[in-house]
């Protein structure tokens, strides 16, 4: 078990180095973080257009939390890169478990997502005139972390499913987070959608975590735990599915010798 965590740690360090090579701090803040914050402001201003203060608050909270998910599904790019660069085949023949490396390969995006989400949570409410209970904000951060992790697991499964069609990576990444923005209760409650779609939204990452955040900010406690457990269960389900799909991919690719073909 200790060896597994060491591999996860080394993979994470690799991911952090990759982020640092891709973005300088200046570029990250002036381009990517700016874009993320602008996305939250955009939807909050739509809230201002359509109605009352509670609409702005609903959209602000939803879009702040979903930033962590948007970043976390970036794992699709990181894992697919292993195939593009031909390193997946080296991982496959190494003595360590490929799945451990592969499924830890994008954890850095969970971190950048949580940073972006937390920064937006602290900076935007006062800018947009939204009243949030400051004393309750610190506990929102671990809820954002949980939401980011379950979205990460969802991204891991999707990235595994496209390993034979890696040219789909940007398409799948964008569709993945837009599905969350549309149906996970970010901009309209899940109940807005007709059944059985409304029920199915609870199988998506973010839906339950966001319900927990909203309930916590509204002063509840009991419901919060239920929603958090549900988010945990959903995230675990996606992670298990990713693990199984990755094993199946490796088995098939080893059998037909297609591991190094992109």
């Amino acid at each position: 078990m200790r060896a597994t965590w060491r591999v996860v740690g080394q993979t994470f360090a690799h991911g952090v180095a990759e982020v640092r090579a891709t973005f300088t701090a200046r570029v990250w803040f002036s381009a990517w973080a700016l874009r993320m914050v602008a996305q939250v402001v955009f939807f909050a201003l739509i809230g201002r257009m359509v109605g009352q203060a509670q609409d702005v608050r609903y959209l602000l909270v939803g879009n702040v939390v979903v930033l962590a998910a948007v970043e976390a599904v970036g794992v699709i790019n990181s894992t697919v890169a292993e195939r593009h660069q031909g390193t997946l085949i080296l991982l496959a023949v190494s003595p360590t478990s490929v799945a451990t490396v592969y499924l830890a390969r994008g954890l850095q995006w969970v971190c950048t997502g949580v940073v972006a989400s937390t920064a937006a949570l602290l900076a935007l409410p006062s800018l947009l005139g939204v009243d949030l209970p400051w004393s309750r904000l610190p506990l929102v951060v671990p809820m954002i972390v949980l939401t980011g992790l379950s979205s990460y697991a969802y991204g891991c499964l999707l990235s595994t499913l496209i390993l034979h069609n890696v040219h789909l990576q940007w398409l799948v990444l964008n569709v993945a987070y837009l599905i969350l923005m549309a149906f996970a209760g970010v901009n309209v409650p899940a109940s807005y959608w007709p059944e059985p779609l409304a029920g199915a939204t609870h199988l998506l990452p973010v839906t339950n975590g966001l319900l927990a955040v909203r309930a916590w900010l509204d002063g509840a406690t009991g419901d919060v735990l239920v929603h958090l457990v549900a988010e945990c269960a959903v995230g675990s389900g996606w992670f298990l599915a990713a693990l199984l799909a990755h094993r199946a991919f490796l088995r098939r690719s080893r059998a037909d010798g297609s591991l190094d073909f992109v």
Partner: peptide, 26 residues
Amino acid sequence: PSEAVALVTTPLLSTVVLSIVDRSRH
């Protein structure tokens, strides 16, 4: 065609924005 990502994302983004407006009944 997968490189023209916006052809797939535009309907989804429209769905997001229109669902907000539709729910508001304005």
